[in-house]
Design a protein around this nucleic acid. Structure first.
Length: 503
RNA sequence: GGUCCGUUUGUCUAGGGGUCAGGACGGUAGAUUCUCAGUCUACAGACGACGGUUCGAUUCCGUCACGGACUACCA
């Protein structure tokens, strides 16, 4: 097989959607699996939709995911430039080739004229198509005299170049994922290849660049499937061998209908973008929400692809070995934010306590706490398996750092009995007498005291937890007080008694 | 409306002419415990519908229904 070269070709029109990231990922995995190269091309032919910062965002996103670009704007390569705006002259030349060969023509119809024709057809319950059936009656170099359109051209009248779609011809083509597809050209229109602003449309730029950049496989979203017959025809007109095509199914909303959009994320509280988008209307990102890039990538890879085994956890390296385009599904995948969290949980469990302590220290610094790394490791060992994100550790352990400010009224009502005060006082003096307080973690002193006195464990431990934590949650009490120390433990008992003791 | 694509539990999916239709997320229950969470165990839950082909269809074919994409001088 010839050298595998794939490209990811986003438009810099805003932040990169996770569907786009998945497309990039599948391209990358396919390339690496087949010892190929991954090319990043920026498709910025639409001046009107260009958004400042989007290009940088795309690159940062890929970088965060661990998707390494082999050829691109920053990386260089033998087939540049890799920004379409810088290839402007190339497209003009290739558009002319098609006009000269008679496969494309000049059209002078204004957008307003076309719009009105479309409306008229719509009112009549039909669809206006600019093709063999209508072009003779429209304003273009096929329908009017050569002398006339040449004069329009020299006068500088605005025009576009349209592809001359043949009449009533069945086009057969293959898609790696969907198999053979047949479309009749009569249902297709004479697509604009070259715009009046001097820039090509996607259809022209895409084909010319893929050919010039020697792209072997085009892996892109399903939204491009309807224009595949056009692309196949244009390749044929140029006499070029088309690349192989694979159209990926779309990512769908977690609920309801349609494809995943930014709105869904806002509504249901999960990010739809890999990174935070800081411009204009801001958007949340997976990175900032605390996801690990390898967990994010793993989750995305399994959304629409599966290895055929029951393995679910894959490093990106393992993915490049296991990936196969044949195992990409045909139908759209509904995005499940819960499963995304599960993946992060799995990856967090695999991290060492030391690594997590380092991450947590950063987080705590922002909260104004400066805690010794060894103490943080102990803390992490207590709550690690119950959290999915580093920020969850804080939510699970805030009471380790600060005494409760309020006490859960429900718990007081249910658990605070007449003897609670005296029991806690007894416990207090027991703890106060301990020389090696940290040992409370493993030494059954308290248990022994409860047994000897014949007390009820629940009756004591629950109110004890109430004064230390403020409510009924958290790890084992002995782990908590061992960590916060004797002084703090006694202080919290005293405070609790003085506040709740009145009841 | 038209063209094309798709349809296995609530979700991601495996499978494939005869299987107990498998796994994961989520859900429920029990166990564990001083609490929550977690963990472990168990349980519930699917081949869109209807016709064919066949000894036999979830798997092949057809029709319908539903879902999706596209239908721009946007990508």
């Amino acid at each position: 097989m010839a050298q595998v070269r794939v490209r990811f070709a986003p438009s810099p029109t805003g932040p990169l959607h996770i569907g786009g990231v998945r497309t990039a990922l599948y391209n990358y995995l396919f390339a690496k699996k087949n010892d190929g190269l991954f090319i990043l091309r920026i498709e910025d032919t639409d001046k009107a939709r260009f958004v400042e910062g989007a290009e940088k965002y795309i690159m940062e996103s890929l970088n965060w995911c661990g998707i390494i670009v082999d050829e691109g704007i920053n990386e260089g390569g033998d087939y540049g430039p890799y920004r379409q705006i810088d290839r402007k002259e190339i497209y003009r030349q290739y558009a002319d080739i098609l006009v000269d060969s008679g496969d494309a023509y000049y059209a002078f119809d204004t957008p307003e004229q076309l719009e009105s024709l479309r409306r008229k057809s719509e009112n009549a319950g039909q669809t206006f198509i600019y093709n063999a059936a209508t072009r003779e009656s429209l304003d273009n170099s096929v329908s009017i005299q050569e002398a006339v359109w040449k004069e329009k051209l020299t006068r500088g009248e605005p025009y576009v170049i349209r592809y001359k779609m043949p009449h009533n011809e069945d086009i057969h083509f293959d898609d790696i994922i969907r198999g053979n597809i047949v479309v009749n050209t009569s249902t297709l229109d004479d697509k604009v290849l070259f715009k009046s602003d001097g820039m090509p449309t996607y259809h022209l730029a895409n084909i010319v660049d893929d050919h010039l950049m020697k792209i072997s496989h085009v892996i892109r979203g399903e939204e491009w499937l309807p224009s595949l017959p056009l692309h196949v025809m244009v390749y044929r007109s140029y006499g070029w061998d088309p690349p192989h095509f694979a159209h990926l199914p779309l990512l769908l909303k977690p609920d309801g209908k349609g494809k995943l959009s930014k709105r869904d994320g806002d509504k249901m509280g999960f990010p739809v973008f890999p990174l935070f988008w800081p411009y204009g209307e801001t958007a949340k990102g997976y990175r900032e929400e605390g996801y690990y890039p390898d967990a994010f990538v793993n989750m995305l890879a399994l959304l629409g692809w599966n290895p055929g085994t029951e393995q679910e956890i894959f490093s990106i390296k393992e993915l490049t070995e296991a990936f196969s385009i044949d195992r990409v599904g045909k139908s759209g995948s509904r995005f499940d934010p819960e499963k995304a969290k599960w993946f992060n949980h799995q990856y967090l469990q695999k991290r060492s306590n030391n690594q997590l302590a380092l991450e947590l220290r950063e987080f705590l610094r922002a909260q104004g706490y400066h805690i010794d790394i060894v103490r943080l490791e102990v803390l992490i060992s207590l709550v690690k398996e119950r959290v999915s994100f580093v920020k969850d550790i804080w939510e699970q352990t805030d009471f380790f750092f600060k005494a409760p400010e309020t006490y859960d009224q429900e718990v007081i009502k249910k658990r605070w009995k007449e003897d609670s005060l005296s029991l806690l006082l007894e416990l207090r003096s027991l703890l106060e007498k301990m020389d090696d307080f940290e040992a409370v973690r493993t030494e059954p002193v308290v248990k022994k005291w409860i047994m000897d006195k014949g007390y009820n464990t629940g009756a004591i431990m629950n109110v004890f937890r109430l004064v230390i934590v403020g409510t009924l949650r958290g790890p084992r009490m002995f782990d908590i007080i061992s960590w916060i120390g004797k002084e703090e433990t006694l202080k919290r008992i005293d405070k609790g008694l003085s506040v709740i003791g009145k009841y």
